[in-house]
Design a protein around this nucleic acid. Structure first.
Lengths: 269, 269
DNA sequence: CGTTAACTTGATAGCATTCAACTAGCGTGG
DNA sequence: CCACGCTAGTTGAATGCTATCAAGTTAACG
């Protein structure tokens, strides 16, 4: 990616390997040199967004897409009764509003769950890139499809599982995804969501989330303090959750881990 | 689409206008003559599938995509306890396993909910078409994104709404979608799902679906008999459901209705 | 050291599930 | 022709998971 100077811009060393979007797409399609160059050449604006700040709001007509460089975002919709449903969490390398490239009007909002760093790319640039490099378009399309698979699993979660499995399942998913970006060393990962927010994601009240987490801790499956989660017994946690990672459509775990860039490089972006 | 003779093959008059895929895609991107020709030129096999028959099974590695010509399909996944979650219903013009074009392995199954007619197109043909006509690729990508929006709304449905609104909401969605394909004249549409299946879609037991439908009937919002639903009070039904069609990402209702082909032409395919 | 957000704990209430029995429609076969 | 079985739909009663309400605790922060 080429740099553009702007209000919140930052400048730092950058390479193909440390570009989170390349890192992500390359797990499924092998990008040619020219394709990687095209991604690196995308104009973008790097911005810091604060905790709890909205990136996109329902009914917006977006003209750019965000790439998460660092931090945690979520998609959500506010329901009429003031309740809120969280649809997904987005970590480094994700494009939470990729949908906006195709939708006239957003049907949901996107917010930062902690201070985060985002790279904003204009829609025209993405469109042009996709026209010139159709395989990148296919790779991005694939991301949309993979997001859909996650939505389906979340539907299973809220409709078909009980509180205990439901909560465990979300933890399993976040662990696998973060591990895929080398952000969960030793089964431990930073996950800055409140119990209230967790409840909005799994369809439970904050009170019940609390009791459920206590049970997960009591059974020795996880520990969760200071916004950081540790998997204490991965096998039992998966079993308790009924977690089957197929829906995440990743490569085999070992390959996954091998191809992911080391965390140090990731931080360099 | 060009014809190929095969086991269940049928031959009949066919035009651009009666091709359900063109009809669907054209609502959002205007296809050029060449692009329409490319779609018409897709090789396909027309097949009849029986009620309750699986088109795709979980863990399959599909090599073709189905286009619904007539009938009703659903995506679903069987949960460990024998329960089943339905993720979506698919009507004329839909490509229920478009995902399969990008996923190595299917994470869910697809079944016919009544005897249906499908056009199967090999993945290679789709891939080739998308390479030659990137705008068709974009249109299909958009379909994937729109499917994702529906999943999100279903998540809201099962997680955030009560049985009454939940059931009403599904009816609203099916009505709008079917109307968009001119399959719901006079607020009446064929919807061959059992109460058990409806429960699998909205996350309720069949017993509770029954009581909920009775309430909807009692309040004079719908009638539902002989697998056919009639909207008796569209305004009140929408209000009861908390239904806001934005998430379906259609054009304005009037435009929508105007662009949809007449039902007679549709049947000709 | 007061204020606030996040977390914790207990008690009560309600929506939906489950179990169970019963009805209606429909095709099959004796 | 009727008995039978099967599926779909209906109804009632009891159980249970989770929400809600309410109060209290902890931790962070100015």
């Amino acid at each position: 990616m080429r740099f553009r100077l702007h209000d919140h811009e930052r400048s730092m060393p950058l390479s193909h390997a440390s570009n989170p979007l390349i890192a992500k797409l390359q797990r499924f399609v092998s990008l040619s040199r020219a394709e990687k160059d095209a991604i690196v050449a995308l104009p973008f604006i790097l911005k810091q967004v604060g905790d709890n700040q909205d990136i996109v709001r329902e009914r917006d007509k977006p003209s750019q897409c965000a790439i998460v460089v660092q931090g945690l975002l979520c998609r959500y919709k506010t329901l009429n009764e003031g309740a809120r449903q969280i649809f997904s969490f987005h970590i480094r390398g994700d494009m939470p509003d990729l949908d906006g490239l195709h939708l006239e009007i957003m049907d949901h909002s996107i917010a930062a769950m902690e201070a985060s760093t985002l790279a904003f790319v204009p829609h025209e640039s993405l469109t042009a890139m996709v026209e010139n490099y159709p395989r990148i378009g296919v790779a991005l399309w694939r991301e949309s499809v993979a997001d859909g698979a996650i939505y389906r699993e979340w539907m299973v979660n809220v409709a078909g599982r009980e509180a205990y499995q439901r909560t465990a399942h979300l933890i399993c998913e976040m662990y696998v995804r973060l591990r895929g970006m080398s952000l969960a060393p030793n089964g431990c990962f930073h996950f800055p969501v409140t119990q209230e927010e967790l409840g909005d994601a799994v369809g439970l009240s904050a009170v019940h989330v609390n009791r459920t987490l206590q049970q997960l801790r009591r059974e020795g499956l996880i520990s969760w303090k200071n916004r950081s989660v540790t998997i204490l017994d991965w096998d039992r946690l998966q079993k308790a959750a009924g977690f089957d990672p197929v829906y995440l459509h990743r490569l085999e775990p070992e390959v996954d881990a091998a191809m992911a860039m080391p965390q140090s490089l990731g931080q360099a972006f």
